Amino acid sequence: MTGPLLAIRGLTTALASGRATVLEDVSFSLERGEVLGVVGESGSGKSMLALSVMGLLPKAIRRTAGHIVLDGEDLTGLSSGGWRERRGRDLAMIFQEPMTALNPVMRVGDQVVEVLRRRGMPSEKARQETIDLFRQVEISSPEQRVRAYSHELSGGMRQRVMIAIALAADPKVLIADEPTTALDVTVQAQILDLLRKLQKERGLSLLFITHDLGVIAEIADRVLVLYAGRVAELAPVRKIFDSPQHPYTRALLASIPEINGPRGRLMTIEGAVPSIGAMPRGCRYAPRCPFRRDICEQEPPRLGIVSLGQAVACRQPFGFEEPQEGALA
């Protein structure tokens, strides 16, 4: 089938009370075999986007508009049973904290077997397949590890088990929600290498969510910059680093620590992401933006194309004047 594997069109979610929106008019596509990085500060809506795509929104939040189209099929009209059929088989997710995601009273191998058994695989074959999956995700001594409980494994090993569970049903789209946040830098690098290797070997489409632009540089083909539930910028990873067009993207890049860099100090972004019930009327980044104009605080900007493959939601996407020293601090 031609076209993107996953297409999100105008996705809007809101509190069930109707008092505030969480995600607003989010649109993007995920191509077959592509790694799309989703980046933004805590509170930008990254995890809520992942839960929306998985059909796992909490009861307090509901989808109010938009479509989630997977391989040409609109999933937004599915029943709860229909969503259950898609999860695992077509869509799978690696959660941020494996210690809370894994069942502490089940052996980790049994948790993978459970997925395979739901696919109709015989018990003995499922157990052998689980050992093979553990070997694929580079778990040492897989024949012994399948009998371990989650508390008996290191953080890196637990995350590898989560990856094995996600891969067990051979999904088309894999969503990784900050899968390396709780790991030390050495293990983080190993998990990133593993995910990239598995993605290429299996031809997976990967939606990789993180707050770390350094991680994005290593793994992503394109980048979606999310801020306060809206898309700020969408571009190939090279353009995000070489020619960022949104002030928020520029600020995120400026806040990356540099060893012996010219700045001499760590740059920070003034203020904080607005809470759900206190979103600004116009551009949601305007209160923190050193380039804001009056119109920015009155009307939200629309996402528009500024160059090949690059779109930005800003009224002045290029030709910025540099702010005064400390304006981004």
Rank of each mutant, 00 (worst) to 15 (best):
E297C: 14
T100R: 07
A168H: 03
E73K: 11
G277W: 00
Y149A: 13
V22A: 07
P287E: 12
E233M: 03
R160Q: 09
I305E: 15
V115F: 11
I68Y: 10
S307I: 08
T210L: 08
L206W: 07
G155V: 09
I305Y: 09
S205F: 00
D177L: 13
R87Y: 05
V105A: 09
E114S: 05
V69G: 13
G55N: 07
P142D: 07
L204M: 01
A101S: 15
A272G: 01
L116A: 05
L70K: 00
A235Y: 06
I191H: 04
P122V: 03
D193K: 11
P257T: 11
Y285F: 15
Q111M: 03
D193H: 06
P4E: 00
A327F: 05
L266S: 12
E114F: 07
P98E: 06
V39I: 10
I305S: 14
A254D: 12
E24Y: 10
R281T: 15
P171F: 07
R288S: 06
G45I: 05
G55C: 14
K172R: 15
V185W: 04
T12G: 08
D110Y: 05
L51P: 06
R315E: 11
S150N: 03
R107Q: 15
R119F: 15
R284A: 14
P98V: 08
I276A: 07
T13M: 04
L198S: 00
D294S: 11
H246K: 06
P280F: 00
A189W: 08
E322R: 12
P323T: 00
I256G: 03
L56E: 10
P98R: 02
R196Q: 10
D132V: 05
S52M: 07
I61D: 07
A176E: 11
Y227M: 01
A169G: 08
Q190V: 03
I61L: 05
P301I: 00
F208V: 08
R9C: 08
H151R: 02
L133H: 12
L224K: 07
R147Q: 13
S154P: 12
R127V: 05
A286V: 12
A251S: 13
